[in-house]
Design a protein around this nucleic acid. Structure first.
Lengths: 351, 351
DNA sequence: TTGTACGCGTTATCAA
DNA sequence: TTGATAACGCGTACAA
């Protein structure tokens, strides 16, 4: 039809009213006579005008109605990782009252390709920890004065956080193994930094872990097993657990009797590695997980694990965001995990 | 610090250059002398300026770098429904090259609360069918000249679609039952319209189904069982399948020997209802699903179902969006499902 | 209740 | 390589 899109000014002109009146008709921010409203609506219809341009409105108003969720991994992980998924489900629920759109953002660093925290109009942001790059993201957002809530990470002063009792829950699992008599235990951690390859963690590397979740859980394990060897996985995936498990079980002489994995997926991989090596779980090898998610295809095994309230975490974050957008201060929250005994742990085997 | 945020104009003034030069320094859209660049960057740092305001840039540039995904259900369903989840995973992957953010949008209709299609700056949108409100959404978006791709639905002329061979696949399942000798079959459909309560579908209701997926699958079943009673579920959930299953199996005299469910989740619910009623599957009742997803807790049952390439659907939609954003026309695509025999179907029981 | 006038913060265009 | 200028489309004091 027309070369240029109709604007509210065009509509106003066509309706014979002033732009401000037309604006008010659409926003409903002030009373308008019925006939006037009708004239404006008619003109709009005639010109194919469907309402204020969101871009312009957003500029003028200073807000966009968009809440960003920043994840470190590839975007798809939000949908494939079970914990993140539950968290997002809860987040969507907690945010329902705000009526904001959820913008999934991947913070891959300097990647100039796409719009990141820098180029996207956000009213608020949720940083999902387990994200090595989180600290950088945080700085950017704070500089922009975007309200931020952090899930599973330390956002510093003034940033509401939603955290778990990772350390205590992991210690509880370690104590469980100790009670069963295990002394030769290996620890399999979540990734400890962005772009770090899987591998053994020496003392130096352990001191420099950048992912809070990994550090906290490791600290919990260390309270019971200060000297256990620790291996960092490349990602929280069954396949990574399998690969890591092969390393952990490679040397029959130095084989642990139990593995403390920092996630259920990793633990599932270790169980597979054990099967592969001809070891029975839990008779020859005990394995613990973390998260309490459903791992597909693991039956008849049920992991001994710490069940975390993942959906609840997301919901809490959503509420925190809602509060911040409403101008009230949001609280930092600490949720607790529950120990769940499965059939993947048992007494230490007699040598 | 300052009452007002620094703008690029402030930075330019402080650096002793023109606003346009400062703009170019940040956008990199034209060559700038090194000393000039440095002067601008220094001034920016001094003033705490962290880059162009996305809102203003978006207005001026006419694009926002945001791709919307419109779902009909509550937002959390994106993360909890297995098919949608896989689809989103694929979509994120297919869109990776574009570097756009994925904005999850819920189209609940007139809900004035939040920003929907009308108030959000979108460069493109993906409509996920199985969404009764889809047609309305589509109109809004087309009026706005937002490029649209539709997954599992009819977008009309000029709208690229990603579809399945729902009809053929469902017919294949029905034929499978027919081959096993079943004559008394009940059909359990997906929701057929927004806000319609669960219940039996009479001929009139069947003719007015607004959800394309439900209509197509039903049509496939009808080719084999033209007169089978059909019941519409309230949602694609195990619990809804259970509730519907109770209805379908309520009357021992009129009990079907097989149920064609339009989704695996519904089918799983029917299996549960059968167990509840003391019926053995498949000896007393055969059940077929649709989707081919993993249903948690269903073992030892494995549904006889049509496996759909859900992730592939998403990926294709992502590519279509990428193409449209690049100005090239996107193709409509039709993907095919695969029949998979499980252990939930068997020969018709002798009466 | 309606109209006028201005600013929101950028960026494209063109000229120098 | 840099600078001046003009939109981009809207909301909202303020005045009428």
């Amino acid at each position: 039809m027309s070369a240029r899109r109709a604007t509210i000014a065009d509509v106003a002109r066509a309706a014979g009213v002033s732009p401000s009146t037309a604006s008010v008709v659409f926003s409903g921010r002030a009373p308008v006579t019925d006939p006037t409203r009708r004239r404006v609506m008619d003109a709009a219809q005639r010109l194919g005008y469907t309402g204020p341009d969101p871009r312009a409105a957003s500029l003028r108003r200073g807000s966009s109605g968009i809440v960003g969720v920043v994840v470190g991994a590839r975007l798809g992980a939000v949908f494939s990782d079970p914990v993140t998924r539950l968290q997002m489900d809860g987040l969507a629920e907690g945010l329902a009252g705000v009526g904001a759109g959820l913008l999934l953002l991947q913070d891959t660093g300097e990647d100039a390709a796409g719009p990141s925290l820098l180029t996207t109009p956000l009213d608020a942001a949720v940083l999902v920890g387990c994200n090595a790059r989180m600290r950088d993201s945080l700085q950017v957002l704070r500089a922009r004065d975007v309200p931020v809530v952090v899930i599973e990470g330390d956002g510093g002063a003034g940033v509401p956080q939603i955290r778990l009792d990772n350390r205590e829950a992991q210690r509880r699992l370690a104590e469980h193994l100790a009670e069963l008599g295990h002394r030769d235990v290996a620890i399999l951690t979540l990734p400890t930094a962005a772009e770090r390859l899987p591998g053994w963690l020496d003392a130096a590397a352990e001191a420099e872990i950048q992912v809070d979740v990994a550090a906290d859980r490791l600290a919990g394990a260390r309270e019971v097993y200060p000297d256990a060897p620790a291996y960092a996985a490349g990602a929280s995936l069954i396949d990574e657990g399998l690969a890591a498990g092969r390393m952990l079980l490679a040397d029959p002489a130095a084989r642990p009797t139990a593995v403390l994995a920092q996630s259920d997926l990793l633990a599932a991989g270790v169980v597979r590695a054990a099967e592969e090596a001809g070891l029975r779980v839990p008779q020859d090898l005990s394995v613990t997980g973390f998260d309490g998610v459903v791992v597909d295809g693991l039956s008849p095994y049920e992991l001994t694990t710490a069940v975390q309230p993942a959906a609840e975490k997301g919901r809490a974050a959503g509420h925190a965001v809602a509060a911040m957008l409403a101008g009230s201060p949001a609280e930092t929250l600490r949720l607790t995990c529950t120990f769940r005994a499965g059939n993947t742990t048992g007494p230490v085997p007699a040598r």
